[in-house]
Amino acid sequence: MNLARERTRWLIGISILGVLPFVLPGYWTYQLSLAGASVLAALGLNLLTGYAGQISLGHAGFLAIGSYVAGLLTSSFGGSWFWIALPLAGVITGLTGLVLFIPALRLGTIYLAIATLGFGAAVTQVLLKLSEVTHTYEGIKVPGPAIGEISLNRDLTMYFITAGVVLALLWIARNVVHAKLGRAFIAIRDKEIAAEAMGISLPQTKAYAFLISAFYTGIAGALHAHIVGIAQAEVFNLGTSIQLFSMIVLGGLASLPGSILGALFLSLLPELLKLLVASQQYYNVIYGVLYGGLLVLVIIFMPYGIWGYLVRTSFKFPKARKFLTGA
């Protein structure tokens, strides 16, 4: 890892993120914030599925928990609680991640898929029931973040908060992936027995994978609630879990840049398409065929995702490769 080159990449990333809201219309700032939340969730899922090899079709459950925890806190105590609610949502969601770690100890991929799928469905059902009790059928109204009594411009503030959190958690993910924990993740994914022979504890490593993954996704849920201004259980359903899964496969399994690419692409695709197609009826058909077709085609022509494809192609162009991989 070349440090100078890596620093350049971070600086480029930060400056683009800093300039964007001032050149784009407000609506796109909002859409980018939402995409940022998806990037976080995709990073979390990729750490779990791409690196540690533990499939999850229930990550919508973590998004829902994160958004409810943060939403309940700020709606009850005010927007100035946002700064506590955000990390707390991550921690609490992280701990619920350990619920899934228990079946993961015993189950193979397909069996874990159904267990996580059940977890996602259960979370939605419980939260819906909770909404009945609290009489918040339309969801919880969530205030924007505030400092003391001063409330801040929601869209712009949430954009910069999301961008900051994404960068910070991306950096943490990079550290984790390049250290002993990341190596342990890949080891248990590829050869459980050899991993144990090296002294890697399967329960401990899987617990960390679920904890970290749920933490990231919980933060993403909390951000989502504050960007949109509402925490609602039905928003996060099986479709959400599957879309997250599509993001990481499309971008590239076990790749941090891949998670970002996949998440940005799939979050912004419908918005971009709306610019091109006016009629609602045609829109649905075109969107479905385009989205589905892309998934099918990417896996045929880029079996290791968009990022994997870029890296492979860049072998023909040494300078570009150095920039992409930093190696």
Binding site: R183, I186, A187, D190, K191, A194, A197
Partner: peptide, 11 residues
């Protein structure tokens, strides 16, 4: 060590 190699191939 392992008969059929216990290295992690994608590392």
């Amino acid at each position: 060590t392992f008969q059929n190699i216990g290295l992690f191939p994608y590392m």
